[in-house]
Amino acid sequence: MAEKKVAATKAATEKKTTVKRACATKKTIAKKTAVVINAENVGFRAGDVYQALAAAGKSLSVAEIAKVANISTEEVLLGIGWLFKEGKVKEQEDKIVLA
């Protein structure tokens, strides 16, 4: 009787170990995207930022603009710089809004 109990306990322990190994989380490696900095690319990113702000109709943070425009935060910053220089956007409560 004791042998059956030990065998059952051992089998349960092995099963738990297998489940833990199967459920281990995968580590994801963040890919760095290379941002091409030239007048054409920066102009397109400025257009993406402008369209995102116009569609939202309110002030957005850099992260929100990146999500709406589906571009990286670095590209958002490039576009914002272009639009700031042209006077198309302004800062309002740590967010960006159309001027």
Rank of each mutant, 00 (worst) to 15 (best):
M1C: 10
A2Q: 07
A2M: 06
A2S: 13
E3L: 10
A8E: 13
A8W: 03
A8I: 07
A8H: 04
A8R: 14
T9F: 04
A11L: 11
A11M: 08
A12E: 09
E14C: 04
K15L: 12
K15A: 14
K15N: 11
K16H: 05
K16I: 15
T18P: 00
V19A: 09
V19C: 01
R21E: 10
A22W: 06
C23N: 15
C23F: 08
A24W: 00
T25E: 14
K26T: 12
K26A: 12
K26D: 10
A30P: 01
A30Q: 12
A30G: 07
A30K: 15
K31E: 14
K32Q: 10
K32C: 02
T33R: 14
A34D: 12
A34C: 06
A34Y: 09
V35Q: 10
V35P: 01
V36Q: 08
V42C: 00
R45V: 07
R45I: 03
A46V: 11
G47I: 08
D48M: 09
D48S: 08
V49H: 03
Q51G: 00
A52N: 01
A52H: 02
L53E: 04
L53A: 05
A54F: 09
A54T: 14
A55T: 11
A55Y: 06
K58D: 08
K58L: 10
L60F: 07
V62E: 09
V62G: 01
E64Y: 04
E64V: 04
I65K: 02
A66E: 03
V68C: 06
A69W: 06
A69N: 06
A69F: 08
A69M: 05
I71K: 01
T73S: 12
T73D: 11
E75S: 15
E75F: 04
E75Y: 05
V76Y: 01
L77N: 15
G79H: 09
G79E: 09
G79S: 08
G79P: 10
I80F: 06
I80D: 05
I80E: 13
G81Y: 13
W82Y: 15
L83P: 03
L83Y: 07
K85F: 06
E86R: 05
G87H: 05
G87C: 04
K88Q: 13
V89R: 01
E91D: 11
Q92L: 11
E93G: 00
D94N: 15
D94P: 00
K95T: 11
K95Q: 12
K95I: 04
I96H: 08
L98A: 05
L98W: 02
L98D: 03
L98T: 09
A99T: 14
